[in-house]
Every structure is written in C-alpha cells, then in structure tokens.
C-alpha cells in the first residue's frame, strides 16, 4: 500500500494532490483532529462554559451593519466584559456568533481561513451565497457538539456586488440557513433586539441611521436580557460595530461608536418611556 504521507523528506501526498480548494476539506484529510467538533462523544452535557450573547445585523441601501455586545456569561456570572463577537470574514463580509464562546471562536477562525484559502488557490472570491453555504456546512459539522450543550449559531452578513446590496444570513443549530433582507438578530437578547429593530428600521435609512438603530437594539436587548451587556461608559467598552459596503469591510473605531452611544443615552434620559 502506498504511504499516504509520501516518501521521507518531502511534502505529504495529501498536499500535492490536486482537487479541493476548500481548506476544511483539506484539513479533514491532513489533520482531522484540528477541525472544530472533532472531539465528539463527550461523557455528558457540558454547561459550565462561557456563552456569547446578542448580535444584530441591519441592512441599508448599498450595505449592511453588524453589531454585537461585549458580554460573555458563564451560568449567572459575567465571564468577560470585552469579548469581540463580530469579526471580519473577508473583504466583503463579516460574521458574528452567539452561543458557546470556545466553539464559536474556533468556527469563525476556520471560516476566515476557508474564505482566504479559496481566494488564494482560485485567484477569485466566492460568491456571497457560496460563502453562506460554506458556513452552513460548518454549523452542521458542529451538530453533535450542539446536542451535548455546546451549541453555537453564527450570523453572516456581506455586500453582494451582483445585487449592489447588503444581505444577511442566519442559521439554526441544524444549519438551516435563512436569508433576511432587512434586519436580524441572534442570541439570548435577540427577541428584544428584534422588537426594537421592528419599530426603528426604515428601508431608505442611511448608513449612520443603521449604525444608530443597531446600537439602540443592543441597548434594548441589554435592558431586558441579563446576559447581554449594555454600553459600559465607565470602562469605555462599547459594542463592536462593523460595516460592509462596496468599499469593503470596515470596523468602526471606539471614537466613532462612543458619540452614537452617548446620543442614545441622552435621548433615553429625556424620554425614559422606552
């Protein structure tokens, strides 16, 4: 039988075999133990791990905004105050997650490499739908872990040059993918965030409006959900906000998010009803 790792002192055969442009497929052959979800068969449900909470995404003409709160919880405790749950996926898309922090971070790391790997090998980027489908496959791979309590769901958003529009894709733990053209939220505070967005969303809003209502939706989620963190003005920890437009991915700096947060707090203080 041929040695799958090739002869001594050269790159293993799996590296030299033409075929796949998918990093995940390649890794499943060369080093399957590195894939997320590979450690299935845990003795029992796992509960005492950190969870990430609320992510929102809002479209506006020509792009999409994604924002996430900064809290991670472990049972009733706050595990971390400055988590980053919204990430750059590639130059024209971003991804956030809610659920088990460890699994979510690993899933996003693999997804980032997956997109970059394809781009380098093929010399072209995947279509937005293909990126969303790749992410669905990864979520599906995590199903055994999800059933043992380590569930994670991503929220994916990007700019589609063919439509000149921002698009949002959400998933459940069994990887059912659904597209939203307006707004979407995932995580424990998503019910409240969606309620907020339902009233605030306007189809013709500007990018600045979209940032404002995304941050405001997180504010509303934090108001009613103990696992979602509100803006921490004392430590100056504000939601992570990212925009994807025809100019590509851009993460807002804290100095840009701070005035938005201040304005929301000022407005709420004058009319404390909502």
């Amino acid at each position: 039988m041929a040695d799958p790792m090739g002869g001594a002192g050269r790159l293993p055969a799996v590296f030299m075999t033409p075929g796949t442009s998918s990093f995940t497929d390649f890794l499943s052959q060369s080093a399957p133990h590195l894939l997320p979800g590979a450690q299935s068969g845990l003795p029992g449900p796992v509960t005492e791990v950190a969870h990430g909470t609320t992510i929102v995404a809002v479209t506006f003409p020509g792009g999409v905004i994604m924002a996430g709160d900064r809290r991670a919880t472990q049972g009733h405790m706050i595990a971390q105050r400055d988590v980053e749950k919204v990430h750059h996926a590639d130059d024209f898309s971003c991804v956030g997650y809610a659920g088990t922090a460890g699994v979510g971070a690993e899933l996003i790391r693999l997804f980032q490499v997956e997109l970059e790997h394809y781009e380098k090998i093929e010399g072209a980027t995947l279509s937005l739908d293909a990126k969303a489908n790749r992410l669905a496959a990864m979520v599906k791979g995590n199903l055994p872990m999800a059933l043992q309590g380590l569930a994670v769901v991503p929220l994916f958003a990007g700019y589609d040059p063919d439509m000149d529009a921002g698009r949002i894709f959400s998933y459940d733990i069994a990887a059912a993918k659904s597209e939203e053209r307006t707004y979407e939220s995932i995580g424990s505070g998503s019910v409240f965030a969606k309620g907020s967005l339902k009233k605030l969303y306007r189809a013709d809003q500007t990018q600045a409006d979209a940032v404002r209502i995304a941050v405001e939706a997180l504010y509303d989620a934090a108001d009613d959900d103990s696992a979602t963190g509100g803006p921490d003005t004392i430590r100056r920890l504000y939601p992570i906000v990212a925009a994807v437009t025809s100019d590509g991915y851009r993460r807002y700096g804290d100095d840009e998010v701070e005035p938005v947060v201040t304005a929301i707090i000022a407005d709420r203080s004058t009319s404390a009803g909502g």
Binding site: L11, F23, L34, V113
Partner: peptide, 17 residues
C-alpha cells in the same frame, strides 16, 4: 501550480494550527 497549491495549504495549515 502543484507546488503553489501545496504551499498555500501548508502555510494556511500552520497559520491555523
């Protein structure tokens, strides 16, 4: 092209690991 692909696979694997 074969070597280029192998190189990208190797480097992406190391960066991920």
């Amino acid at each position: 092209e074969n070597l280029r692909t192998a190189g990208i696979r190797l480097m992406d694997s190391r960066g991920y690991m």
